Simulated scan of single mutants.
Amino acid sequence: MPDTTSAATVRPALPALSTQAERLIELGVHEIAGLTPAGVRTFAAAAGVRAGGDALLAVHPDRAPASALAPLLRRAGKPGFVVVDMTDVDRFGPHGVELPDAPLYLVTGLDRGDHLSGWSPEEALPALTGEGRTPLLLTEGLHWVLQQPEVLERNHCFMTIGSRLRKENGGLDARTPAIWISNGTGRDGRERRDAPKIGWCWWGNRHTWLGFASAADRRATGGR
Rank of each mutant, 00 (worst) to 15 (best):
A66K: 14
G28L: 02
V83P: 02
A178Y: 07
F81R: 08
G80N: 08
G211Y: 02
T36R: 04
G170M: 06
R112Q: 08
I198N: 02
D188E: 12
G189S: 00
D111G: 10
E98G: 06
Q147F: 01
A13G: 07
G141S: 11
R63Q: 12
S67H: 14
R175T: 02
A55W: 07
E31N: 02
G211V: 00
G223F: 13
A220Y: 00
A174T: 05
W119K: 03
G186K: 03
D173E: 11
P177H: 05
R91Y: 09
A51M: 01
N169T: 11
S120A: 15
G222A: 11
H30N: 15
G80D: 00
A68G: 06
V145G: 10
R206L: 06
R50P: 05
T19W: 07
T5W: 10
V107Y: 00
D114G: 14
P149A: 04
R187D: 12
A33G: 04
S18T: 15
D85P: 05
T5M: 08
T139A: 08
V145D: 01
D101R: 14
T134C: 03
T129M: 12
R187M: 15
D85I: 10
D62H: 12
T36I: 01
G80V: 03
D90V: 04
I181L: 14
L146V: 11
D101M: 09
L165A: 09
R206P: 04
K167Q: 13
T129G: 06
L136Y: 04
K78V: 08
W200L: 09
R154C: 11
A46R: 15
T129V: 11
R175G: 05
V151C: 13
L137H: 03
V107H: 01
V89L: 12
A21D: 01
V49D: 13
R23Q: 12
R11H: 14
R164S: 14
P15I: 01
E98I: 13
P177N: 02
V29W: 11
L73Y: 10
A55F: 08
E22T: 05
D114N: 14
G96A: 04
A70V: 12
S67K: 09
H60R: 08
R164K: 15
R23C: 03
G48L: 04
T208E: 09
G211D: 01
G48V: 04
V107D: 00
F43P: 00
P2M: 13
R75D: 06
I25A: 13
F43W: 01
A68Y: 05
R166F: 08
V145F: 10
L136T: 06
L73R: 12
K197H: 00
A51K: 00
P126W: 10
L14M: 14
W144I: 03
R192P: 06
H207N: 07
W209K: 13
F212R: 02
N169A: 09
L138P: 09
T221Y: 06
R206C: 15
L17P: 02
L136F: 09
R11K: 13
A76H: 07
G28I: 01
L146I: 12
P135V: 04
L14A: 10
